[in-house]
Amino acid sequence: MNNMQPETVTVERLEGAGQAPCEVGESPVWREQEQALYWVDIPARTIARLDIGTGKKTGWRLPEKVACITFDRHGTVLAGCETGLFAVSLPTAPEASVRKLAAPDFPLPGMRFNDGRCDRQGRFWAGTMVQDMAAVSPAGSLYRYDAEGTLSTSVVDGLIVQNGLAWSPQGTTMYLSDSHPARRLVWAFDYDTDAGEPRNRRVFADLNQFSGRPDGAAVDSDGCYWTCANDAGLLLRFTPDGRLDRSIALPVTKPSMCTFGGRELDTLFVTSIRPADGANEHDGHLLAVRPGVHGAPECGYAGVL
């Protein structure tokens, strides 16, 4: 194991997010115009919102599992769920209003969308997986949903647990991971920003050499890639040339995804998963980490839902 000693950084558990932990917290999204953070709990079929200033939490329930979200310019949610992509309106809680937009041809039963994020041009990318991770099935694929509302065919296939989508600040490098214990890899691609096509796939970080599995990720303004090291309770930062240069210990076992937010984009908000056995008091809760760097702003969906 090629691990470095984790840094001591102040990590805050956001009590305003609620005392009840998520089973599988995922897909944190910072809404600058609201100064609010949104995220999901996949098995609970919920989208949550936390007003950072007041600490008020709001939640909406969907008719099926929701794994990843982004917003269009009018505040409608684009969500990757079990059976496809949905436009989700968030009226008065607790029920959301949903409309199905598109769905891939799932090759196997028991699949769903997993990790999703927009590129710098506002195309929404999301991948699929077989929900039974014990099956070790490489039936997952990565898809692109463009601003015209067209869902692509599979762009990257052979994925077990698709994860880790992120783009460099200029948008010319795309990152993608497979977080299954049998893979534990992060890939980088050259990204054609005009065509929305990733090319020249290569291994960027092999977490078989480190602790944990590469789950959700974010990129900072220096172009460094932060990944949640699931099962290791760490945030790992890799430089653009694939070198591990920072490791931050977290009070949760299974950090799942991170995003930069706050007024100065200087806070990493981290969701987490609550283990079925041996969970501690922080597992499943939302964390705020201030790593001393700023994030690269994330883009929403460029189309109108």
Rank of each mutant, 00 (worst) to 15 (best):
W39H: 13
V40I: 03
D41E: 04
I42E: 13
P43E: 12
P43H: 15
P43R: 15
R45Q: 14
R45S: 05
R45V: 00
T46P: 02
T46V: 02
I47Y: 13
A48V: 03
L50N: 10
L50C: 08
I52M: 09
T54R: 05
K57P: 07
T58R: 14
G59F: 04
G59A: 11
R61M: 14
L62D: 05
L62A: 01
L62R: 02
P63W: 13
P63S: 14
E64G: 07
A67N: 10
A67W: 01
C68N: 02
I69R: 00
I69T: 01
T70S: 04
F71L: 12
F71T: 03
D72E: 02
R73Y: 08
R73F: 07
R73I: 03
G75A: 09
T76R: 00
V77G: 01
L78T: 11
A79G: 11
G80Y: 06
E82N: 02
T83N: 12
T83I: 07
L85D: 10
F86G: 06
F86A: 12
A87F: 05
V88N: 00
S89A: 03
S89T: 09
L90Y: 10
P91S: 08
P91A: 03
P91W: 07
A93H: 12
P94F: 01
P94C: 02
P94Q: 09
P94E: 09
A96R: 07
A96W: 13
S97R: 06
S97M: 14
V98M: 11
V98I: 15
R99Q: 10
A102G: 08
D105Y: 10
D105V: 14
D105K: 13
F106Y: 13
P107E: 06
L108E: 14
P109T: 03
P109H: 08
P109K: 06
P109D: 05
M111G: 12
R112M: 14
F113Y: 09
F113Q: 03
F113H: 08
N114L: 04
D115N: 11
G116L: 00
R120P: 15
R120N: 15
R120W: 14
Q121W: 09
G122L: 02
R123T: 11
R123G: 13
F124A: 05
F124M: 01
A126V: 00
G127R: 13
T128N: 05
M129R: 04
V130G: 11
Q131H: 09
Q131E: 06
